[in-house]
Computed example of a mutant assay.
Amino acid sequence: MTTFVIAEAGVNHNGSLDLAFQLIEAAAEAGADVVKFQTFRAENLVAKHAPKAAYQKCTTDPDENQFNMIRKLELDKQQHGYLINHCHKCGIAFMSTPFDCDSLRLLTDYFKFDTIKVSSGDLTNAPFLLEIAGVAAQVILSTGMSTLGEVEAALGVLAFGFVAPKDAVPSPEAFVQAYTSKEGQALLRQRVTLLHCTTEYPAPIIEVNLRAMDTMAQAFGLRVGYSDHTQGIHIPIAAVARGATIIEKHFTLDRTLPGPDHQASLEPAELAEMVCAIRDVERCLGDGIKRPAPSEWKNRPIARKSLVAARATQRCDPLVLVCKRPGNGCTPFRYWELQGTAAGRHYERDELIDA
């Protein structure tokens, strides 16, 4: 299976359309499948006096609140159109994470996107999840900061949105019924991919817990991927080896640029290296059948051993055998059967024993 690589431009455009265009070009050149931005209106996303996260205070003006920081990073409808067109020119798919219902409708109703990536911060935003379930054919749900129970609750909301009639009344009980129904489970398997994530920027290696991917796959029977916030490229590569179907990774043109996410992002050359390594991992995983690879056949007689005479032996003398290369003679598995038996002919030392 080919891993779907999302190059997360996010808000690393810093509000500049030209910078956003360069990010698209870098993602396409790196070989990513999609470049993803973020679609929001600050007034719908953040309360006017909401504080910043600690990492945001370190990478932006510490005296500025989250609302003012976010507002400078909005992309309007016209800018979205420009970015989508530029993606088409560069041969890479466009995606964006919506953070409010108006932004969701812009992506699905106006631009006709049917795959929606949901931020970890909205995993518990049940009304928003229900809106997404009503308009998205495919949902990629990031699960940072969550427990297994919270993921299950979110899946219940999505299942309800998939199966319930339009006039059905949402409730926790209705979500559970939809989640446990045969139809709900089938639609979740068809339409939802979970992304394991550690929501810290950068994420400490010791807190990544890639085995949680296995836990979610076993618990829910859904496709699972990984959204990475660690520094470097080795952790997402490990996630692919562990079965991730999607890799999402922040990238920037320059980690020294001002802004909340640049420092925890890859630069273009690193993004290209990550994509190349992921493709190598995909190729090396194989089909799981244990058998000699085509290139190995020629090496079997060279590397393996056969039964040979330990010393010169006359016909009818007891054979004294040892195992030596090459491996194109009698198999060493017959050592106990043939050791000490009468030689059928004369053997020189190190001569292969007749099978």
Rank of each mutant, 00 (worst) to 15 (best):
G15V: 10
G81M: 08
L45K: 09
L23H: 04
A154Q: 03
A238M: 12
P292Y: 13
T39G: 00
S103V: 00
F37S: 01
V46W: 11
P127D: 09
A26G: 02
E351H: 00
H80F: 13
S227V: 10
V151N: 04
A272E: 11
M145H: 09
P326C: 07
Q79V: 04
T124L: 10
S265E: 01
K36V: 02
F37M: 02
A53L: 13
L319C: 08
T215M: 12
N328V: 02
T124Q: 11
F220P: 02
G225K: 08
F111V: 08
M69Y: 12
V192F: 00
Y110R: 04
G156R: 01
A93R: 15
V5K: 03
G15A: 06
Q56T: 06
S96E: 02
E248V: 04
P98N: 02
V308Q: 11
D228N: 00
A272D: 03
L321Q: 11
Y55H: 07
C197I: 05
L222N: 12
I289F: 12
P258V: 04
T341C: 14
K298T: 14
V281G: 03
L23C: 04
V34M: 13
T215W: 07
L73R: 02
G149N: 14
F251H: 03
G344Y: 11
Y226A: 07
L253A: 03
V275I: 14
L123D: 06
P326H: 10
A239I: 03
E351N: 02
L23Q: 09
P301D: 10
G259C: 10
